[in-house]
Amino acid sequence: MGTPVLFIHGLWLHASSWEPWVTRFQDEGYDAQAVGWPGDHDTVEESRRDPEAIADHGIDDVVEHVAGVIRGLPELPILVGHSFGGMIAQRLLGQDCARAAIAIDAAQIKGVLPLPLSALRATLPVFKNPANKHRAVSLTAEQFRFAFGNAVSEEESDQLFERWTIPAPGRPLFEAAAANFNPHSPAKVNTANQARGPLLLIASGKDHTVPETVTRATLKQYRHSEAVTDLETFPDRGHSLTIDSGWAEVADTCLKWLRGQSL
């Protein structure tokens, strides 16, 4: 068997959205699989029908869920996460639970201060009601277009929305928003770990949900570690870069980086 790779999705996307990536990585010899979040069902349709199962799971719940999958593997995996999945990947890497991690348009970790207006607008469907902390929240096609599909055509954005979106728990967003006021925040990552595996951060220049400034501020959080921390930027891409028609370019960039790290 090849080196295990776990793909971790973020809010509003189902694990099956990683299927093209799983196939691409398997073709390159990796033992790849996508991991769902607690409460996710096996399909998009089932997850949409049962939002209560998804509701009220926080960052720690997802970290422990993925850690449980890791404990069942024959060796430590490479983690590839998008959005909140990228935060989860960084936490687990900092805890020495992974050989390496790739965090794509990752949600901001504790210590990251920039809060661009576009990020506030993208997450408004959750924050407009404090009760959403304990609920699962769905996006409309219009909200998805702003938060994910702004760098692709409206037609493609609508197709991605129909194919991959599911309700998302509000709790992780509330936890991330309060991270810098909570010394024990679940969004805290051990960025000073000198012995961890290599990390690749990927930023998108047109991302409304996690603007490039957030990813660059995340990179600065790792300045006290001498472990490999690299940054790649896709200037013309938005938050949908892992699922839209340009996904293969991003996947191939990840594969090239892994080869460069002898992974």
Rank of each mutant, 00 (worst) to 15 (best):
I102S: 14
D105T: 15
L93D: 04
F127C: 02
Q90I: 06
S118G: 06
V112L: 04
L113K: 15
A106I: 10
C97F: 05
A107P: 07
T123W: 07
L113F: 12
A89N: 08
A103I: 03
L113W: 12
Q108I: 13
A89G: 09
P116L: 12
V126D: 00
R121L: 11
R91Y: 08
L115C: 10
L120F: 07
I102W: 02
A98C: 11
Q90R: 13
C97K: 12
A89I: 06
L124E: 15
L124C: 08
F127D: 04
I102P: 06
V126I: 08
V126W: 00
I109P: 00
A89F: 06
D105A: 15
P114N: 05
D105G: 15
V126E: 02
I109A: 04
A103G: 05
I102K: 09
I109F: 02
I104Y: 08
I102Y: 04
A98Y: 04
A100T: 09
T123K: 13
L124K: 14
L117Q: 14
I88P: 07
V112K: 02
I102G: 11
A100L: 06
A89S: 14
D105F: 12
G94L: 05
L115K: 14
G86F: 04
V112Y: 00
F127P: 05
T123V: 13
I88K: 14
P116R: 11
T123C: 12
L120P: 03
Q108L: 15
L92G: 06
Q108V: 15
A122L: 00
M87V: 03
R99H: 07
A119V: 01
G94M: 04
R91I: 14
A122M: 01
A103W: 00
Q90Y: 01
A119I: 03
A100Y: 01
D96A: 01
Q90D: 01
M87R: 09
A122F: 02
I104P: 10
